[in-house]
């Protein structure tokens, strides 16, 4: 009887072992994978300001930025369309999942700018990027090369408040190597500063799948060049699959951030905006 009990015990142990090593034919447990958070904005720029959104590695973003004159011109300027428009053609390229570089050329002051953006934080609800732009004004006015340079460095932090609402804050520093004071007609001097501190704020709200409203406010902190003003812009993004169209009204015609900070002279109290549009076309060269 004792032998039988011992045998049954051994049998149970062995059977347990055997079934443990036999391959299971049942379904695997489904386990969630780690996925990259989706981009917060639909393009690398909100309106005039850059956004935390980065390009995928190998993606090429061809951009056209276009800003017209103030609508206060009325019918005589066809609400600003007859005024000199600032146009920037640009190419941006995704180098890594976290870094992109770009180059562009604006009509105003014939400015060529090189820019780079690196994402340093990318979570489901929070993204942060560092941005750098170097401009070279190629206008033929006899300036030395070094005096044509301007820089803008900024840090962006964006927060997805809800599924449809994203807000962004971007403190920045702008430097123009050459910022001469200029005489006014009344004999006083128009003082120009080389350096400006600023903070940009932006929001992006998705009304529906392919339409979003956007807004920006770029404020100079502390001392500023005489008569320059903060920049306010409001727009609509339309996404069509391969393109993002951004139509907007802005108090600035400048497109590069350093020029928008240091050169905009259009008081918001005048409510005199010009309209403009950006077109982004992304070419997927990565695959």
């Amino acid at each position: 009887m004792t032998n039988m009990r011992t045998f049954l015990f051994l049998l149970a142990v062995l059977l347990t072992g055997v079934f443990a090593i036999l391959p299971s034919s049942a379904q695997m447990d489904r386990q969630r994978a780690v996925a990259q958070p989706v981009e917060f904005f639909w393009s690398p720029s909100v309106i005039l300001l850059p956004s935390t959104t980065s390009l995928k590695p190998g993606d090429l973003d061809f951009t056209i930025h276009h800003t017209f004159g103030p609508v206060s011109g009325g019918m005589s300027t066809l609400f600003g369309l007859d005024d000199a428009a600032n146009i920037r053609f640009g190419l941006d390229y995704g180098v890594t999942p976290w870094a992109m570089v770009g180059v562009g050329r604006s009509r105003f002051n014939k400015t060529v700018d090189f820019r780079a953006k690196a994402r340093v934080w990318n979570k489901e609800r929070m993204q942060a990027s560092m941005y750098y732009n170097m401009g070279i004004e190629t206008l033929e006015d006899g300036r030395e090369m070094v005096d044509r340079m301007s820089y803008h460095a900024s840090a962006f932090v964006a927060h997805r408040v809800t599924e449809d609402l994203v807000v962004q804050l971007a403190p920045g520093f702008t430097r123009f190597v050459f910022a001469p004071d200029e005489p006014r007609f009344d004999g006083s001097v128009w003082q120009s500063l080389n350096n400006h501190w600023s903070v940009g704020s932006a929001l992006h709200y998705e009304l529906k799948e392919n339409v979003a409203v956007t807004g920006e406010y770029l404020a100079v902190l502390g001392e500023r060049t005489d008569e320059t003003t903060n920049v306010f812009s409001v727009g609509v993004d339309i996404e069509t699959g391969g393109h993002v169209f951004q139509m907007f009204f802005s108090s600035s015609q400048w497109i590069t951030p350093q020029h928008a900070v240091a050169w905009t002279r259009n008081p918001l109290s005048d409510m005199d905006f010009g309209w403009g549009f950006n077109v982004h076309r992304v070419f997927g060269t990565g695959r």
């Binding site: 391959p23 034919s25 994978a33 989706v38 981009e39 917060f40 995928k56 992304v282």
Partner: peptide, 27 residues
């Protein structure tokens, strides 16, 4: 996972890992 003895074929993918090359489209 494929088990030839039990003749089972089992596949799955977390759809959140699909990447279309465009963040807006992914969303």
């Amino acid at each position: 996972r494929i088990d030839l003895d039990g003749n089972t074929v089992d596949f799955y993918v977390d759809l959140n890992t699909l990447d279309t090359g465009n963040g807006k489209r992914d969303k």
